[in-house]
């Protein structure tokens, strides 16, 4: 080994660990979503939520926002629905 190896040990930026952590989180999700790589259901989910809410409240196509955050232990699905103001008057 390098003669002066001891001198430059022990201050690792350890980006390798970051790489490993990122991969483990990502792959856990990719493997669970059967078949194709991504959660393909999100756009469909978004359309269906819009349709359900529209039965009761007039909202536009872009008033529902679906966002997913993947974590190691837990993932969260955030659904933001923008409703028309109190007057409930929206052109359509």
């Amino acid at each position: 080994m390098n003669l002066f190896g001891f001198a430059r040990k022990k201050h690792p930026p350890a980006s390798a660990q970051t790489a490993k952590d990122r991969l483990q989180i990502l792959l856990a999700h990719e493997r669970s979503s059967t078949g194709t790589a991504e959660a393909d259901y999100l756009p469909m989910l978004q359309r269906e939520i819009v349709a359900v809410i529209r039965k009761h409240v007039p909202i536009g196509d872009n008033d529902v926002e679906v966002r997913m955050e993947r974590g190691n232990q837990m993932s969260s699905l955030e659904i933001n629905i923008e409703l028309p103001g109190a007057a409930g008057t929206k052109a359509g």
């Binding site: 690792p12 930026p13 350890a14 980006s15 390798a16 790489a19 490993k20 991969l23 483990q24 792959l27």
Partner: peptide, 16 residues
């Protein structure tokens, strides 16, 4: 580079 923590180790890759 593995020794310097800049590259994943063999064990890291196998574990994944």
């Amino acid at each position: 580079r593995v020794d310097r923590g800049e590259m994943m180790t063999v064990d890291d890759v196998l574990e994944i």
